[in-house]
Amino acid sequence: MGSTSGGSTGSAADARDRDGEGRARNARPRDGLGRPLPYGADGVPRQPEGVVRTPEETVAEAQRLLDEGRPFHAHEVFEDAWKSGPDEERELWRGLAQLAVGLTHAARGNRTGGARLLRRGADAAEAWVSGAGKALPYGIDVAELAAWARDLAREVERDERAVDAGARAPRLRGARPGP
């Protein structure tokens, strides 16, 4: 812990970025796929954490980020919805966050993690739709989105190259045509 004399603590742990409640927050800049960059480097703007949005605002903001090739940042938007929304919708938003993280890993070249998370997210979102009895929650075509995720998972497993996140971003409210 820190020194009580008011001097420098010298501890690496004390130098971590903290929020107002003392929780660690990494303020390092990040690239479009969420990878940390060195302090002082130019990164892309981070998504603020803990933002409460309507479901429609969540879908629109996540789609904008996906279209920009920033699935890691879209994941953070979905994570806010999963943490702040009603309990009965948590699995939907968690599944969508997993899809965005799966695309992030696929774009980073992590074939195994990307394919696994794409499938897990598709399964979670479909399970939520089945349990909730809602065909198109907030206009999201979950069946098309799950088909997109499974197709991309197969492609990621076959191909050695990382995918272009912006070019392969899904349409949350209607599938994007082909690869």
Rank of each mutant, 00 (worst) to 15 (best):
V77N: 03
G22L: 10
A143F: 00
W148G: 08
G85M: 04
L145T: 14
E56M: 09
L172I: 10
G20L: 14
D141C: 01
G32M: 07
R158S: 10
L66R: 06
A127S: 11
V44M: 08
L136P: 03
G166R: 08
A81G: 05
H105L: 15
A153H: 03
P36D: 12
R28F: 05
D151C: 02
A169C: 09
A24F: 12
F78E: 02
L103I: 12
T112W: 14
P170E: 00
Y138F: 06
G69T: 14
L96D: 03
V59C: 02
E56D: 08
Y39V: 10
D14N: 11
A143M: 04
A60S: 13
L33V: 03
G22N: 05
D14C: 10
D159Y: 04
A27F: 12
L92E: 00
A135R: 12
A165D: 02
K134S: 04
R161F: 12
L152S: 05
G102F: 10
R64Q: 10
P177F: 13
R171S: 10
R111Y: 06
R173K: 12
A12V: 09
P170H: 02
G102N: 03
P179H: 15
H75R: 14
R94Y: 14
G20A: 13
A132R: 07
E57L: 11
A74N: 02
E61A: 07
D87Q: 14
T104I: 06
N26T: 04
D19F: 08
L145F: 07
P36V: 15
G109T: 06
A15C: 10
K134A: 05
L145V: 15
G178T: 12
T112D: 09
D87M: 15
R16A: 15
V129M: 05
P29H: 11
N110Q: 04
Q98V: 08
S8Q: 13
E49T: 14
A24Q: 15
Y138P: 01
P179S: 15
M1E: 02
A146G: 06
L92Y: 02
V51A: 08
L37T: 00
L33H: 07
A107T: 01
G43A: 06
P48F: 12
P36K: 15
G166W: 13
E68C: 13
A162F: 10
G6R: 05
R64V: 12
G34V: 05
A153D: 02
T4I: 05
R111L: 05
L96Y: 08
R23H: 14
D67C: 09
R25Y: 06
G131K: 10
G7F: 02
G34N: 09
A12S: 13
P86R: 15
L152A: 05
P71S: 11
L96M: 09
A41Q: 04
V129Y: 00
L37G: 00
R28C: 07
E126R: 08
